[in-house]
Amino acid sequence: MDLVAEDLSACNTLIVERMHSHVALIPQLAAHIVAAGGKRLRPLLTLAASRLCGYEGVRHVSLAACVEFIHTATLLHDDVVDESELRRGQASANALFGNKPSVLVGDFLFARAFQLMIEDKSLETLRILAAASATLAEGEVLQLITQNDLSTTEAQYLEVIEGKTAALFAAATRLGAVVADRPQAEAEALDAYGHNLGIAFQLVDDALDYSAEQASLGKTVGDDFREGKMTLPVLLAFHDGDTAEQAFWRRTLEEGEQGEADLGEAQRLLERHNGIGRTIDRAETYGEAAIRALDIFPANEAKLALIDVVRFCIDRAR
């Protein structure tokens, strides 16, 4: 964040400007979720990747804002779909304003993102971000299909997180090479970096859902459990479990019959089968792949920062 502080400040200013609307509820609701926002990781990736590629213009700032609008729009929609009452430890937008306004303001932010894409006047950046937006939506729908279904395979789970998380990470970093007009090999390398980082990031998130305190996770522990989401820690514990354990997972996740003690039992079974630890190990494998993807670039501050991002994402679980 220190490395791209000036660019990030410009990006945040643009985000606030483009959230404006004469319809008062739109900026009010949008400001709520943006103000509650995390570390701006996705736009940070665009800004740092642009610096890594030696870009000295200003296009990366508006494209970083575009990436954040896409991400924020999906958060609004996801919280409605998941019926979430908290977002990063605070009341979610749908809990405060209702489902209908949340969906519609999410649509507004998507529209703002596409306006920024058009203003960039590049068919390539439009192609990258439009494709990522479509893939992101496909990932969310696939997650909905696999919900409450313990026959979900690890391959299907990976397809979900590649769509709902990794696609936008990959687009965000690839943009750095595109705006700098760098060779295709560098664009592909940044795409691979973002893709693997995105998978590692989501694996850690899915592990934390069963292990972290709300203060560090930014949401209540066990959300995925209550919503019947098929994540890697659960799939590992289910497949390694005995008949009684598998019956527990079927009752709580497939049939949705959950009591007050069931989350604690789920955590105990995950610990017994090392579901969380094995998920973090998998995240580290993808993190190492992300770092290797940067080998094509010479060592500099931006490269070191992007490597540190990988370590930061994984170290959240430690």
Rank of each mutant, 00 (worst) to 15 (best):
M1Y: 15
M1P: 14
L3S: 12
A5M: 14
L8G: 13
C11T: 15
C11P: 15
N12Y: 06
E17Q: 15
R18L: 09
A24Q: 06
P27F: 07
P27N: 07
P27I: 08
L29K: 05
H32P: 14
V34P: 12
A35R: 08
G37I: 01
K39M: 03
R42E: 09
R42M: 06
L45R: 03
T46K: 03
L47C: 05
A48E: 00
S50I: 03
S50G: 15
R51E: 10
V61D: 02
L63F: 11
A64K: 11
H71V: 15
D79T: 10
D79C: 12
D82K: 08
R88M: 14
A93W: 06
K100T: 15
S102Q: 01
V105P: 15
G106S: 08
L109R: 06
F114S: 10
E119D: 15
D120Q: 04
K121Y: 05
L123A: 11
E124T: 12
L129M: 12
L129C: 11
A130C: 09
S133K: 09
A134L: 09
T135F: 08
T135I: 04
E140M: 02
L142Q: 11
Q143N: 08
L150R: 05
K164Q: 15
A166D: 11
A171N: 01
A177R: 04
V178G: 11
V178I: 12
R182H: 13
P183D: 13
A187M: 04
E188I: 14
E188A: 13
A192W: 01
A200R: 02
A207M: 00
S211K: 02
Q214C: 00
A215S: 09
S216A: 09
G218C: 05
T220K: 06
V221Y: 03
F225I: 01
K229H: 01
V234S: 02
L236A: 03
A237P: 14
F238S: 00
H239D: 09
H239I: 01
T243W: 01
R250C: 13
R251M: 11
E254Y: 13
G256S: 06
Q258W: 11
E260N: 11
E265N: 09
E265K: 04
Q267H: 08
L269K: 00
G275A: 10
I276A: 02
R278P: 15
R278L: 06
T285A: 03
T285K: 02
Y286N: 04
Y286E: 03
A289M: 00
A290C: 05
R292M: 00
P298A: 00
K303Y: 08
L304A: 06
A305G: 10
A305V: 08
L306S: 07
F312V: 04
F312K: 05
C313A: 13
I314F: 10
D315W: 03
D315V: 00
R316D: 03
A317V: 04
R318P: 12
